[in-house]
Amino acid sequence: MSVLERASALAVAVVPPLPAPSWGLWRRQLAAAVRLELKKGFRGRRVLGVVLLASMPVAIFALHALFNSPDDPANVGEVAWHFAGLYQAFIMRLVLFFGCVLVFGNLIRRELLDRSLHFYFLAPVRRELLAAAKYLTGLVVTLSVFGAATVASFFLAYAGYDGAAARRFIFDGPGLGHLGAYLGVTALACLGYGAVFLAAGFFTKSPALPAVTVFGWENLHFLLPPALKKISVIHYLQGLCPVPISQGPLAILADAPSPWVAVPGLLGLTLVLLFLSAWKIRRMEILYTED
């Protein structure tokens, strides 16, 4: 059947009207918006920056595994400590942070620059649902890319050392637990920073200013008094890392929050920021038009 014949056949078909708003309809709308976001926003050049960022720690560990002598005297305990250092100083503070800036900070801004945000706003969809769809899309992308990078980095970190000891540490020792903890931290970082930069996208035209501000706050966190540490994402993430590392000689020490505090704390912060985004998108105007 040709395109025209198919069009003619379908044109006369009867389509029932949309049902009244319900959870089922909202679920379909959410799924459709996420699918479309993934299709239009996260392939080709647009995802290249995120993939490059995620591949940096993988490349570092791969090079280390490649050029490290198998006779290196380091034991698996030292490897775990090295990985913890690189994860917390590089992956968590830089890669995950800027990855979330790239993905979530552009969810709204890019549509405003492209003058395409009205595509969603002209559909009979609750605007809060659109904010949720954009956030979920960002999470799918960041969790996939950075989750994979975390797993690859972890295994490559042990690849250059005594194989038997590494296998024992990973599969018979605490290794898989460490990996699970790092994956959890990666996921929570994406959740938390994602919510921060999604919300920032509604209030600022460019993600640069909120990125620099939050980056400064998060990286001066070690100098903050204990009360202020509690309003930084990094404080909770560090507390969840399986191997603690030194904060440096100038650090003002504070008790690391327990997982029972850190996880609900981060989820609570995320929810507050998502409600803020939902409130903002409900009142948002399309101002890129002039007549």
Binding site: L18, R28, A32, K39, K40, R43
Partner: peptide, 26 residues
């Protein structure tokens, strides 16, 4: 609208279908 901006990478059919799916149509 007067703007010619469309979600990138879509065919004409995909554009209209995607829009309707965001409405909630199967």
């Amino acid at each position: 609208t007067q703007h010619d901006a469309f979600p990138p990478g879509l065919t004409g059919f995909e554009l209209v279908t995607s829009y309707l799916r965001v409405h909630g149509y199967p």
